[in-house]
Amino acid sequence: MILALVLFAVWSGWRVFVVDSMVRASFSLLASFVAVGGAGVLMSASYIGVATVFMMAVEMMVMAIFMVAFMMNPAGLNPMSMVHQNRLSMAAGALAFLGLSAAVLTADLPDRPVPPETRVVFDLGLELLGPSMLIFETAGVTLLATMVGAVVLSSQQGRFGSADEGSRPPGLTENGEPAGRVPDESGGHHMHHGGHGDHGGDVDGASDHGQGHDHGGHHHGHAAKGDPS
């Protein structure tokens, strides 16, 4: 039973990096966590196991939303692969697995299972609010600091103005032309007039306006370079 759960955890963990759909990837990871939680319950760590499932369900829901927000092609309708240094990573992963497995197989593992009559959850509760209270409270304070930090990092309105003020994508080369989309700036309209001459003869205001907007933020001379079309 534990073997099946562990195998399922590994299989779904592997699926995370194979499937195209980001939602499927997130929930594969969740399936892996649920299997690990189930294995924990079978190994009489009932509170830790079930709490893992509970916590990870909420966490992976948030993860799925971020995945959809930040990935191109989140539904995986087109196959895609966004990896770098693939060979090296594979080697590192395999090496980690083989090394740890060798350590597991060669080591003389202790064999002292939990006595069946132990009141695991009861003892854990006494431990949490007794001798180990400092550890428990430290975790609590860390989480509080995390909350404050996350809000500070992600809030749009900071003490010194808007967080994306002067936002500029990194260059493709050192100090080079910015990559990716360029944020809308009020300068876009200004550029629009500058770019008008380049498009000479194009009097369709609507389409020209849109293109001029795309050029906003680029140098005059390089307007054509940054044109996504």
Partner: peptide, 24 residues
């Protein structure tokens, strides 16, 4: 259990090193 754990760590290491997207 420990073999499974090391497999998970290996796969996770592969993912952390190879994925380009921050979220992945």
């Amino acid at each position: 259990v420990l073999l499974g754990a090391s497999a998970l760590i290996g796969i996770g290491l592969y993912g952390a090193l190879s994925q380009q997207s921050f979220v992945m």
